[in-house]
Design a protein around this nucleic acid. Sequence first.
DNA 1: GAGCTTAATTTTGTATACATTATTCTGTAA
DNA 2: TTACAGAATAATGTATACAAAATTAAGCTC
Lengths: 241, 241
Amino acid sequence: MRLKPEHHLAFFYARTGFLHNIKPIERQTLHLKIVDRLREMIEHGDIAPGAKLIEKDLCESFAVSRTPMREAIRALAAEGLVVLTPNRGACVATITEAQILESFLVIGALEGLAGELAAPRITEAQLDDVRSMHTSMLERHAANDLDGYYIYNRQIHDAIFEIADNELLKEMRRIVFNRTIRLRFIARIADDEWQVAIKEHEEMIVALEARDGPQLGAILRRHLESKRVQIARWLQRQPSA
Amino acid sequence: MRLKPEHHLAFFYARTGFLHNIKPIERQTLHLKIVDRLREMIEHGDIAPGAKLIEKDLCESFAVSRTPMREAIRALAAEGLVVLTPNRGACVATITEAQILESFLVIGALEGLAGELAAPRITEAQLDDVRSMHTSMLERHAANDLDGYYIYNRQIHDAIFEIADNELLKEMRRIVFNRTIRLRFIARIADDEWQVAIKEHEEMIVALEARDGPQLGAILRRHLESKRVQIARWLQRQPSA
DNA sequence: GAGCTTAATTTTGTATACATTATTCTGTAA
DNA sequence: TTACAGAATAATGTATACAAAATTAAGCTC
């Protein structure tokens, strides 16, 4: 049966257990290092959404005591990557279909602003870089290499945020991404949607060359709206669970 | 001498010290309660930007041990309200003029999206509520009551985010506000700017009545841009430090 | 007194111990 | 078997103890 929007995408619920092949962590400011490692593992799906984080297991896996581990978990909870329940510990945050679609609206607003700011500021050198990424992206598309395509696609969007030169804006994007990034490891684009995305990227280059902020902002908002619709369709296609 | 954009608004640097008149904290899930209290104190300016958070002092003030206090500080650091330096503890985050202006750009993007989403969704009952807040706001303006004006102004903007019905969007706004809220306790609006703000609010009501999302979004982006310019002027006017 | 070196103190970072709350297991009754 | 009660276990929550780093103070030279 199909998942309702209010249902979770965490299809399985796993106890953490002892995790193998974990690099040891150097002493001092442990909690920051643990935060990075746990975030990486959560984003990469090594720890499933909804999985409970058992302090003891994680401590043994990382070979640290509970003090820095708890500090790390609290920090991740403040970021929204983990959910705390009093006296019942922490779970990896789950995300509903509705929340995924919500997040694309927010990312659209952020990318739109990034575009508005970036276009008037871009230097010739930066423009060359973006053009080069764009060319590489087209090559990956021609080779039907979706993973490669995504890498360059991501580079272009990252570059726009860099050029926009607004630290808070980048930070907000990072936070939103943190909560939806797992999806990018599974969602595949359809061919016709891919064509549209390419076309929108062409328009972005034109707007950048024209240093037209409002125009680039509008294109990016439209681009993210396309992605949102694409994800919505992909979720529709998913077979159940 | 004037502060350069890269200089901090934290004009004084205070050691925490024992804080008096602190309500005791009930046991269990202490760190969450401490987070709330510390956040409140930081936002209200009871602990100055740049002030170092001495664990021992804070623990004595709140009558808790270092464990939950450290967890709380780590959580606040993840929110960006506090800055950690390895082996040197935590300071209340400072904010530069440039960062303040950056934050208004981001808030503008978020409010713009909120407007786009809210206008097509608003019910007659909700519209009546907003109209009522708007009327109250106008009254406070007529009475030259700036504090009262800000309360209703805030209510209207909150209402638009509520009607937009996007949890992540609200969360992002909360995070951005957390980092700039201290400013709202000091920045005063000039009379002509006040007039402009009122006019923009009138337009917002019209767009809401027309259920015109793009229009409301545009107005809100412009409204926040006005605020940004207003804050920039206010910062210019500040006598030095 | 200024500037440096070094010891004393303070503060942060980590590990462990104890208290409290959840969860699981076991045995019994229907 | 199912349902429940209560004990046993395990997990989280908090406090304290110890280690390492940073800061401050003291002493010394010039």
